[in-house]
Design a protein around this nucleic acid. Structure first.
Lengths: 247, 247
DNA sequence: GGTAATTTGTCCGTATGTATA
DNA sequence: ATATACATACGGACAAATTAC
C-alpha cells in the first residue's frame, strides 16, 4: 500500500492513525461524513474487513459514529468530567478551590531504574517525563499531598505547559496531542510515610498516608500517564457520593 | 444459522450472552480458560468470525482477556466496575466482595456511647443493630479485612439472615423491607491498625490500614446502614476502572 | 534450549441482511 | 420502491506469540 510505513503495526492500526490524524487536523471536521467504507477500501487498497477494524478503533476512541444506511459521522469529542467523581487527586483539589497552590519540585526526563519500575509497574529502562510536585492550601505551609507524574515520552511536550498549570494533566495531553484516554484506573491504598516522603509532607516518619494512583490508558492500551498521589491520613479523605439514577 | 431464533438479535450477541451466562453461573470460573475459538465454532456451529465477535463483546465488558498463543481467560471483575465516566451507580457496589467468605464475630443491638458516636458520626444514645465480621479469601486463614456494620434499628430484622449471608447487606434490606437506597457515600482514608483491630487482622500494631466507609441513605435522608471496613494495606487495594462507552 | 503444536491476531474475498436516504 | 451504506456472517489463509515436548 502506501509507502509511508512508520512501524510494524498492523494495517488497521496504521489506517486508524491515518484517519485520526485527518480528523484532528480538520480534513474531516466534526459533523461531516467520513468516506464510505468502500471508498476507504479503494483509497487504502485494503479489504473491507481492515477498514472496518480501523473504523472500529475510531469508534472506541469516541471519534466517529456509524449508522446503518446513513454513513459514518465525525462526532464532537466527549469532554469527560472526571470531577463529578469528587476530589480524586491533588490537582482536582487545587483546581476546585482556587484557594490552593502547587509547587513543582522537579521536572524532566527520567530513565526508569529497576526499583522505580517495580514501584510503578512500568518497564525498567524506558524513558518517561517525570514531574514531582507538592500541593498546598493557600496561606498554609503544610502540604496537602505529594504527587509524582510519569508521562509517556510521546507526550513529553506538555512539560512546557506544566509550570503554570494547576489542573489535571491528562486533558492537557488530550487537547495537545489529539488523543483520547479510553480507560482510567484508580487504585487507592494505605501506606506509611517514611524518609523523603515524610519529610516533604512534614509528618512524622511512620505516620499513615493514603496513596491514590491513576493510570490513563489510550485505546491502544498504551499508558499515557501514571500519577501517584500521597496524602497524610489526617489531611485528606477520598470521598465519593453515588446517587441512584432514575429515568 | 439454526432455525430457532429466540430473539431478533444477531448471532454473535446471542452467543456472547450465552457465554456470559455461563461465566457468571460458574461454568467458567474466574481464572479458567474459555474453550478455544475453534471449539466454540464447533459448539455453536458458526464461523470463527462470529465467535470472535462474541468474544470481542465479552472483552469490552471486561469479562475475559485473550492473548495470542495462550488462550482466553476469564478475568476477575473489577472491585467496582463503572461503565462510563462520571456516572457511578449504586448497582456497581453489588459486585463487591465475590470469592470471599465471612465469619461473623458479633451481632446484636447496641446503644451508641459517646466515643462510638464520635467515630461513626451517628448520634449517641441511639440504638443500632451492630454486626462485626472478618472477611477471608476462600481457603485462607489470613483475614482480608474487618467490617463493622451499623444498621438502623428499623431494619434490624435482617439480622436473622446475616449468619448465612455473604453478599453486601443493603440489597438484603431493600428486598426485605421494600425500601430503596437513594444515596451511598463512600469515604476512603488511611489509618494505623492498633490494639484490637491489629489483633483481629493479625498484623503488627502500627502497620498501615485502609479504611473504607459506606453510608446508605434512603430517599427520606435517613441513614439505613453504615459500614466501616478496615483492610491491612498489603492485603487490599481499592481499585476502580472507568471505560468509555462503546457504540 | 530448540522445535513443533496450539491458539489468537490479522487480512483477504464474498455474500446477504437491514436501516436509511 | 430503489439505491446506498453499514452490519452481520461465511470460508480460507498466514503471522505471531505462547506453550508443550
Amino acid at each position: 500500500m502506501s509507502p509511508e510505513n512508520g512501524s510494524g503495526d498492523p494495517l488497521y492500526l496504521r489506517i486508524a492513525r491515518s484517519l485520526k490524524t485527518e480528523i484532528i487536523s480538520g480534513v474531516f471536521p466534526v459533523g461531516t461524513q467520513l468516506p464510505t467504507e468502500e471508498d476507504l477500501c479503494r483509497r487504502f487498497n485494503v479489504s473491507r474487513y481492515t477498514v472496518r477494524s480501523a473504523l472500529g478503533r475510531l469508534r472506541d476512541d469516541g471519534l466517529i459514529s456509524s449508522r446503518r444506511g446513513a454513513g459514518t459521522t465525525v462526532i464532537p469529542p466527549p469532554t469527560m468530567g472526571m470531577r463529578s467523581f469528587g476530589a480524586m487527586s491533588i490537582e482536582d483539589l487545587l483546581h476546585a478551590g482556587s484557594g490552593s497552590s502547587l509547587t513543582i519540585g522537579h521536572i524532566g526526563m527520567l530513565t526508569l531504574d529497576k526499583a522505580t519500575a517495580q514501584r510503578t509497574g512500568l518497564k525498567a529502562g524506558e524513558e518517561w517525563l517525570f514531574v514531582e510536585a507538592l500541593g498546598f492550601n493557600t496561606g498554609s505551609d503544610i502540604p496537602l499531598g505529594h504527587a509524582q507524574h510519569y508521562i509517556n515520552k510521546d507526550f513529553a511536550g506538555v512539560s512546557r505547559l506544566l509550570t503554570t498549570h494547576k489542573a489535571p494533566i491528562f486533558p492537557l495531553i488530550e487537547d495537545l496531542f489529539g488523543v483520547t484516554m479510553a480507560e482510567v484506573t484508580q487504585e487507592i491504598s494505605a501506606r506509611l510515610a517514611a524518609g523523603n516522603l515524610a519529610r516533604q509532607l512534614m509528618v512524622e516518619p511512620g505516620s499513615p498516608a493514603l496513596e491514590v494512583r491513576h493510570s490513563y490508558r489510550l485505546s491502544s492500551g498504551k499508558i499515557a500517564q501514571l500519577t501517584i498521589n500521597s496524602h497524610p491520613a489526617d489531611r485528606y479523605k477520598h470521598a465519593v457520593t453515588m446517587r441512584r439514577l432514575k429515568g
